[in-house]
């Protein structure tokens, strides 16, 4: 295995300079998720303007893959409709399991190397699972 296949420059950049890290003043939805295999945790805060994700922040602790993936996700969904954001999360998860070609995934495409490592796929999809939970769970 070549390490650079997993840790693409974009990933290291998002890990060291995370985008949208922090908290919103008035989040419409907040979802926290734990990865029980490693104890990593991510909280995603969304501000919804009607059907639109008008703002988003993430917080938590985890490996470079989970943190970079969360950072990339926040960039990708900001300004999108809830429906578009859910489609993106679904696309990304299928992309990592190899059943889908990348479709407007932007920086997230850099995470493709992770698909060779089932244990790390959980890290890469943690924020996406949180997003799905936030946007499909009416109670949260």
């Amino acid at each position: 295995m070549n390490l650079d296949d997993m840790y693409r420059e974009t990933i290291l950049d998002h890990n060291q300079n995370p985008r949208n890290r922090g908290h919103l003043e008035n989040p419409t939805k907040t979802v926290g998720l734990l990865n029980p295999t490693c104890g990593d945790e991510i909280a995603l805060e969304l501000e919804l303007d009607g059907e639109k994700v008008s703002d988003v922040r993430f917080s938590g602790q985890g490996c470079s893959i989970s943190m970079a993936s969360a950072s990339m996700l926040t960039e990708a969904v900001k300004g999108k409709s809830a429906e578009q954001a859910l489609a993106l999360a679904k696309n990304f998860k299928e992309f990592l399991t190899g059943s889908q070609n990348p479709e407007n995934l932007g920086d997230l495409e850099a995470l493709h190397g992770v698909s060779q490592f089932p244990s790390r796929v959980k890290c890469a999809t943690l924020a996406h699972n949180a997003l799905e939970k936030a946007l499909s769970d009416k109670e949260s």
């Binding site: 893959i65 943190m67 790390r120």
Partner: peptide
């Protein structure tokens, strides 16, 4: 400043 998962991944390589 390096998460243990990332440490273990470099080690594995």
């Amino acid at each position: 400043r390096v998460h243990p998962h990332d440490v273990a991944q470099v080690f594995d390589s």
